Simulated assay, not measured.
Amino acid sequence: MSKIADVIKYEGDNSTFIWKHPCEDFNSLTQLIVRESQEAIFFMNGQALDLFGAGRYTLETQNIPKIGKLLNRTTGDETPFHCEIYFINKTEQMSIKWGTDSKVQYVEPTYGFPLSIGASGEMSLRAEDSRKLLLKLVGTESFLGQQKLVSFFRSFLMTRVKTYIAQVLKAKSINIFEIDEHLTIFSNEIKNLLVSDFADYGVSLEQFFVTTIVKPDGDKQYEKFKELHFRQYADVAEAKLKQQTDIIHAQTEAQKTVIESQAMATKRTQEGYTYQQERGFDVAEKVAENEAVGEFTNMGVGFGTMAGVGGAVGGMVGGMMNDAMGSAINPSTPAPSSQSAQAFCDNCGAKLSQGSAFCEECGTPIVKFNKTCIKCGYEFERYGKFCPKCGTKRGD
């Protein structure tokens, strides 16, 4: 017979799930202390009678109702009786390692080739149902620690884990070459499948982590598909880089064109002429460089082009065109003099009466200008920036 115990309490460590107190015989006035995150199961004659939560208990018949009829009260409850106390540690126990004992065989979902991989990681467990855990796994044992619990679970754990790994990889279509970036989802899916398996033994699977996937590096078939996979992404990355480069180049050219256009517009504003007038100046310069009508054809300048030149400059160029045509057709016909030419207002384009000082339509003063080009001697009919015959910039 064991010695009479005054106090019974848990004396195991944090890596223990179930611990049996060494005293088996004690009197009914013995004190039972159960700490937080613990439970104690009272056994008498091999039967689990009562379960105690956190607190301090005096083992008297009124506190243990299921054994009240079994006690012999003839000795004033002082007679020792045979009993056992099991403590269940319900704290979450972490960093319990696991690993597959052999390779998992499955068909890679992306490329469809057979593959063998291994896996390992960690998990955390907690005693959930004290009675179920004690009766199913402990039996007559006095101690159940992490290693022993994992050894109990090893067979079914390896079978379930390998099956679930293949199922999850297929169901989620996880590429073997991208599996490392899906480990969190992969771990959670396997954990959800394992929860009910552990619950059958009164254990709660709190966390389950896949930390390492052992790939068949060096296998010829695996290496072939690996090269194909990464070549595909390299080609996509190269094409994307080229596309981005082309976009940047196009944006740069567009910005350059806008800047040049803005600069030219600023120049025209400062010098007092428009885009249409500038085109007229260009045409006028080409006209001045050619003496015969045939030259216009060589330049690609047609009659429609001259008719389309707008503004006062268009009028001058059109007049020059008519002069040149007339001279070419009938050399004896003299060109009209500047005195008989019709003048127009620079502001509104209205015809001006000969000798007018102001426009009759808008009242704009008539600008006086030099009459003769300093280079070719052409007699100007009105104000302008360039000579319509030779294109020389005027000084008026």
Rank of each mutant, 00 (worst) to 15 (best):
A199I: 03
M320K: 08
F303G: 01
R160D: 13
I41C: 06
H229K: 03
F209T: 12
F17C: 07
Q262F: 07
G349Y: 01
G55L: 07
P114R: 09
M325G: 05
D13I: 12
Y383D: 13
R279Q: 13
G304D: 09
K393A: 07
T305G: 07
K385R: 08
F296T: 00
S353A: 12
V161Q: 04
A239E: 11
T61I: 08
E285T: 15
I96T: 04
G384E: 14
D6W: 08
Y164M: 06
T100G: 03
E78W: 08
V7M: 13
F296W: 14
A265Y: 01
A254T: 05
L193P: 02
L51E: 14
K103T: 11
E271M: 13
S337R: 11
G53C: 01
V367D: 11
C345E: 02
F209G: 03
S187L: 00
H229M: 02
L228D: 01
T58F: 14
I248M: 05
L29F: 10
Q251Y: 13
F113L: 13
M321W: 02
F152S: 15
P388I: 07
L134G: 08
V236C: 02
S142K: 15
F113A: 10
V150I: 15
K371I: 05
G355W: 11
G315S: 06
Y111L: 09
K385H: 00
L51A: 05
S37F: 05
Q262L: 12
T100D: 01
Q105I: 06
V7L: 15
S338V: 15
E141M: 15
L352S: 06
M94I: 14
P114T: 10
E181R: 12
G76E: 00
V168H: 02
G280M: 09
T252E: 06
S2F: 07
P216L: 04
E381F: 06
M321C: 03
T163N: 14
S37D: 10
T252G: 06
Q276W: 12
I174G: 04
T91R: 05
N347C: 13
T212Q: 03
A357I: 03
G121Y: 12
S187G: 00
C83Y: 01
E295H: 08
G300S: 02
N298V: 11
R73A: 06
S2E: 07
M158K: 07
E108I: 03
M320H: 10
D197L: 05
R73E: 04
Q62T: 09
Q244I: 11
P336G: 11
H82L: 04
S124H: 09
N89R: 05
A307C: 01
G395K: 10
A324H: 05
T110W: 12
K220N: 01
T333Q: 09
S28H: 01
L133M: 15
K393Q: 10
K371S: 14
G272H: 14
